[in-house]
C-alpha cells in the first residue's frame, strides 16, 4: 500500500500564478524520498499542502488511501528551524504533540523519556533548548516530530543550519536510528550529497510552476556503507543529478 499519494496537485497563493502544477508523487511505506530543487521552487509550498496548511486549488492528498486534502494534524512535519519553544524544557517540547492530543503531562513525559537515549539526547530532559547545541536541538526536534506518531513525516531541510562536521555526524546517526524506525519520509534538501546519502529515491522538483520532472532511485542497500559517499557509484549518481538540474 502507498503511504502517501499526491494526485494532480496544483496550488497558487493568489489564484493566478501557479506555484505547483499537476504534481504527482507517491511515497511507499517505509520509504525515504528526497525532494531536490532550487530555492523558491515550491518545495516548502508542497509540504504545506501535504501538511494541510495550504489547500490546493485542484488535486488530492491521500494518506494511506484516505483523503486528507486541506486537513492539518495528520502528518508529522518538521520545519526548517528547530522551532523548539524556548520556554519549555526539552522533554516538554518533545511531549507537546502528545499533550495536544490530550495526554496527561506526566504520562507524556514518561512516554517520550524512553526515546531520549536512542536519539542521543539523554540527560537533556530538564534542560531548556537554549542550553543545547545546534545538533542536539535538531535531534530533539526530530524526536518531537517522531512523537507526533503520524505514519508519514515531512522534514524540511532538517540539517541545513548545521555546520559540515555536525551535519555528517547527523547523517550517520540518521541512517542508524531513523532507518530502523522505518518511518515513511519526504525530506527536502538542496544538498545533492545529502540526498544521495540518505534517500531511497530522489525526486527533482523543477520548473515554474513546479512539478516532479525526474526520479532517480538509489539502489545502494540500507544500512549503507560508511564510505558510500566516497564510491564511484555515488559520484555517478551525483553527475546524473547535476546534469539533470542544469
Amino acid at each position: 500500500m502507498h503511504a502517501l499519494d499526491i494526485q494532480n496537485v496544483s496550488f497558487s497563493y493568489d489564484g493566478k500564478t501557479n506555484i505547483l502544477e499537476n504534481l504527482n508523487l507517491t511515497l511507499h511505506e517505509g520509504e525515504l524520498i528526497c525532494l531536490l530543487g532550487v530555492s523558491g521552487g515550491g518545495k516548502t509550498t508542497l509540504f504545506n499542502v501535504i501538511a494541510g496548511l495550504n489547500r490546493p486549488q485542484t488535486g488530492k492528498v491521500l494518506l494511506g488511501g484516505e483523503d486528507i486534502t486541506g486537513q492539518s494534524g495528520k502528518i508529522s512535519y518538521m520545519l526548517q528551524k528547530d522551532m523548539l519553544l524556548p520556554f519549555r524544557t526539552v522533554e516538554d517540547n518533545v511531549a507537546l504533540p502528545l499533550i495536544i492530543k490530550g495526554m496527561k503531562k506526566k504520562l507524556a513525559r514518561q512516554k517520550v523519556g524512553g526515546h531520549f537515549k536512542a536519539f542521543g539526547i539523554d540527560g537533556t530532559q530538564k534542560r531548556y533548548p537554549a542550553e543545547l547545541s545546534g545538533g542536539m536541538r535538531q535531534r530533539a526536534a526530530l524526536l518531537r516530530t517522531y512523537m507526533f506518531g503520524g505514519s508519514v513525516a515531512l522534514l524540511d531541510e532538517p540539517f541545513s543550519a548545521l555546520d559540515t562536521l555536525t551535519k555528517s555526524e547527523m547523517h550517520r546517526w540518521y541512517l542508524d536510528v531513523m532507518d530502523e524506525i522505518k518511518l515513511s519520509t519526504i525530506f527536502i534538501t538542496h544538498d545533492v550529497d545529502e540526498a544521495i546519502l540518505l534517500s531511497d529515491r530522489i525526486c527533482l522538483l523543477r520548473g515554474r510552476p513546479g512539478s516532479i520532472t525526474d526520479e532517480i532511485v538509489i539502489t545502494e542497500p540500507k544500512p549503507r556503507r560508511r564510505d558510500f559517499n566516497l564510491t564511484e557509484e555515488f559520484l555517478q549518481y551525483k553527475k546524473q543529478i547535476i546534469s539533470k538540474l542544469q
Binding site: 504545506n48 496548511l53 492539518s72 494534524g73 520545519l79 522551532m83 519553544l85 507537546l96 492530543k101
Partner: peptide, 20 residues
C-alpha cells in the same frame, strides 16, 4: 512558523494560546 507547526500537530486555537 511556530503557530503553523502547532497547527500541523492538530492544536486548537485555545491550545495555541495556552502553549505558545
Amino acid at each position: 512558523d511556530t503557530v503553523n507547526l502547532m497547527r500541523t500537530m492538530g492544536a486548537s486555537d485555545i491550545q495555541i494560546f495556552r502553549y505558545v
